[in-house]
Computed example of a mutant assay.
Amino acid sequence: MKIKQTEFVISAVGPSQFPEDGLPEVALAGRSNVGKSSLINKMLLRRNLARTSSQPGKTQTLNYYKINDDLYFVDFPGYGYARVSKTERQAWGKMIEQYLRDRDPLKLVLQLVDFRHPPSAEDQKMYQWLSHYEIPMCVVATKTDKVSRSQWPKHSKIIRQTLGMPGHVPLMLFSSETGQGRDELWSLIAQAAEIPSNDPSEPRNIMQETEDNG
């Protein structure tokens, strides 16, 4: 997908602040420090459009990024940060649950997990929740450049087994350092959001693509 224009729109604290233009939305969820900001910047070819919070896990907003007047990336607060209180975690959970269940423009959730480690208990809960409500999703394994390529099949298998992922749920391998997986992820997003990818060589049945795309 050719990126022509990107902009940060709003840090929304509730539905009253969500955009009302009806553009497709792709949400990003994951633990604090899993690399959501880095993924957004790499996908949009911007160095610092999305910035890492100085206090990981403390942000309680949904950050909207508009792309080409075609769609939004919606960056969720990071979960699993030890310093966040139980009350804050509950507030985060309610806000995210309301968005995921009620937001009509939502077309896809990208659940980010760290490729170096087995998915955490929080990762497993998020995956199970998305699966239960049949929300379209793709699991994105970040920081693949930190793992030797010979170990990719092993780590991919661990992620699928730990989360209980069936074969039809895509697992994308991604690196914000090398750009690994960027084109494949854009193809998947474009299909889910029904946006032309501007790429005549786009692979068929991209929603079926898994870790073999690397």
Score class of each variant (00 low, 15 high):
Leu112Gln: 00
Ile135Trp: 09
Thr144Trp: 02
Gln124Val: 14
Thr61Gln: 12
Thr87Asp: 12
Gln151Leu: 15
Tyr133Gly: 02
His132Glu: 14
Glu177Asp: 15
Tyr81Ser: 02
Leu100Met: 15
Asp114Lys: 04
Gln90Ser: 13
Ser156Asn: 06
Glu184Phe: 09
Leu130Phe: 07
Leu185Asp: 14
Thr59Ile: 01
Arg101Gly: 01
Glu184Lys: 14
Ser131Asn: 07
Trp152His: 13
Ala121Lys: 08
Tyr127Pro: 00
Asp123Val: 12
Phe76Arg: 00
Ser53Arg: 06
Gly167Cys: 06
Pro153Phe: 11
Asp102Gly: 10
His168Ala: 10
Asn68Arg: 10
Lys86Thr: 07
Val169Asn: 00
Gln55Ile: 11
Lys94Glu: 12
Trp129Pro: 06
Thr87Glu: 15
Tyr64Cys: 14
Phe174Val: 14
Lys157Ile: 10
Asp123Asn: 08
Ile96Val: 12
Leu106Asn: 02
Trp92Tyr: 13
Arg160Trp: 14
Ser156Glu: 06
Ile67Glu: 08
Gly181His: 04
Trp92Gly: 10
Met165Gln: 02
Arg103Val: 09
Leu112Ala: 01
Pro77Ala: 01
Pro119Asp: 03
Thr162Ile: 12
Met137Thr: 08
Thr59Met: 05
Lys86Val: 11
Lys107Ala: 08
Phe174Leu: 11
Glu184Met: 14
Met165Phe: 11
Ile67Met: 09
Glu134Asn: 12
Leu112Ile: 00
Trp152Ala: 06
Arg182Met: 12
Gly179Asn: 04
Ser53Asp: 05
Leu112Lys: 00
Asp104Arg: 13
Val84Cys: 03
Arg89Gln: 11
Leu106Ile: 07
Arg101Met: 14
Thr178Glu: 13
Val113Leu: 13
Met126Asp: 03
Asn63Glu: 08
His168Asn: 14
Ile158Leu: 10
Asp75Met: 03
Thr162Pro: 05
Glu184Gly: 12
Leu106Arg: 07
Leu62Met: 15
Arg103Ser: 10
Ser176His: 08
Leu173Gly: 05
Gly164Met: 14
Gln90Glu: 11
Thr144Ala: 12
Lys157Glu: 14
Pro77Cys: 01
Gln124Leu: 13
Pro105Ala: 02
Leu106Asp: 04
Ile135Phe: 10
Arg182Thr: 15
Arg103Tyr: 04
Ala82Arg: 01
Cys138Pro: 06
Leu171Ala: 05
Asp123Ser: 04
Val140Met: 05
Asp145Glu: 12
Phe76Glu: 03
Arg160Tyr: 11
Ser131Val: 05
Val140Glu: 03
Leu163Asn: 08
Pro77Phe: 00
Val147Phe: 06
Asp70Pro: 00
Ala82Trp: 02
Arg160Leu: 07
Leu185Glu: 12
Gln180Tyr: 07
Leu100Tyr: 08
Ala82Leu: 04
Gln111Trp: 09
Thr61Phe: 07
Phe76Val: 03
Gln90Asp: 09
Gly57Lys: 02
Ser85Glu: 05
Ala121Gln: 07
Gly181Ala: 09
Lys125Leu: 14
Gly167Asp: 15
Val74Thr: 07
Val169Gly: 01
Tyr81Met: 08
Tyr99Phe: 15
Val140Cys: 04
Tyr133Arg: 06
Ala121Met: 04
Ser53Ile: 06
Leu130Asn: 03
Asp123Lys: 08
Met126Pro: 01
Lys146Tyr: 07
Pro166Phe: 06
Tyr64Phe: 15
Leu62Gly: 12
Lys86Gln: 11
Arg160Pro: 07
Phe73Leu: 01
Leu163Gln: 06
Glu122Phe: 01
Gln180Asn: 10
Arg83Gln: 08
